Simulated assay, not measured.
Amino acid sequence: MSWRMPSETAPHARTWMAFPVEGPTLGDTDAEREEGYAAWTEVAAAIARFEPVTMVVDPSELARARRMLPGDVTVLEAPVDEFWMRDHGPTFMIDDERPGVLGAVDWIFNGWGAHDWARWERSAEHARIVAAEVGAELISSTLVAEGGGFHVDGEGTVLLTDTVQLDPRRNPYADRARVEAELARTLGTTTAIWLPRGLTRDYDDFGTNGHVDIVATFPSPGRVLLHTQRDAAHPDHAVSAALRELLATQTDAAGRRLEVVELPAPATLRDDEGFVDWSYVNHLVVGGGVIACGFGEDRADAEARAILADAYPGREIVTVDARPIFARGGGIHCITQQQPALPREVTS
């Protein structure tokens, strides 16, 4: 086998999502729940402009999903508890030696480290359900991992954080060498760039303990977009400065010294819960476009769109208000998972 995870910028067959269900993540009041349903629906509608979308929907939410979702979004009925498809769903692979074969990694998912508030038993089955639906070969892993915990450049390099992969609540017996070996087997990576941590808010009880997909990503091989907090009053000012210094010294699988492109945070520093982790890094690349996080700040949102347009030339940048998603613990990238197109599916 020669499994390889393509870059997110490679052609997609579709994007996968999971529709929200009632519970602690969605909210306690009718207004909070409606806000959550609407946010997931808005992201699905934005993606559907560019490529097919399939939404995994719990039987209890079928009527609502069919009423709210655009008609061109496909619904797959399956049990749902958590609805962050990036994390509990499959991570898709291609096989360079077998061009017509799709693979799907089934990581162990334990609710971001078995938090007592997390409900994961149903959604932990999504990798197998989705793999069967698309006819993908299942790649079983003994690593507790989530798709938001790593980013690849499609050419052998992976970004990840110590505090997620080596979290004793996830992988108590792992070390870097073991993690790298398993990612080499499943993702096809040969060079790991380890970041010491993620953003401050992500270490709260409802956080992921440092997912990299809110911190840094590869828009193209050799380049990294880095979340940058410019305000020294926010604790992530020091975090992003240290990460920038580290990344500037790193080389990728091809031996290139990384070019670090700063993607500044919005001006808002706090919400009712404390310092925010609002990040434009948590965008999704789709066919012909980029679905970008918006935070209701015209100047900052526009600056982010300009940086993303430069990073992804030829793609339309579409901003979706991500504040309701971040209020629930993540962003646009966290609730989506791309399925790469196989060679016969690529039409342009």
Rank of each mutant, 00 (worst) to 15 (best):
W112Y: 06
L243N: 00
R4A: 11
I214W: 12
L102I: 09
S240K: 05
A18F: 07
D30Y: 11
R67N: 15
A136L: 06
P324D: 00
P343I: 07
S220V: 12
D175E: 08
V21M: 00
N282R: 05
L26M: 15
V105Y: 04
G287V: 13
V152I: 10
S2H: 10
Y280T: 04
M85A: 10
R201W: 04
V43P: 05
A46V: 06
V164W: 05
A13T: 05
P340M: 01
A248N: 11
R197M: 14
I129L: 09
G222T: 04
T251S: 07
F109G: 02
E125V: 11
V53K: 02
V320A: 04
R64T: 10
F50Q: 03
G198Q: 00
A184C: 12
M55C: 07
A341W: 03
E259R: 06
W16M: 03
E8F: 08
Y173I: 13
I291G: 02
R64V: 11
D213E: 07
T319W: 06
H115G: 13
I108C: 13
R64Y: 10
P313F: 03
E61A: 15
V134E: 07
A233S: 14
A174K: 10
I307N: 00
R169M: 14
I139G: 01
S2C: 07
I47H: 01
G210H: 05
E245D: 14
D106F: 10
D252A: 02
E42V: 10
L243E: 01
V179A: 03
A177K: 12
V286I: 09
D96T: 15
G149N: 14
R270Q: 12
P196I: 00
Y203C: 06
P221Q: 02
G154E: 01
D252R: 01
P324I: 02
A132E: 15
R344Y: 13
T91M: 13
E273R: 15
W120P: 08
W16C: 02
V276G: 00
V224T: 01
I129H: 06
E61H: 13
V80K: 05
L269I: 08
Y280H: 01
R244P: 05
A45Y: 00
W194C: 08
P235F: 03
G274S: 04
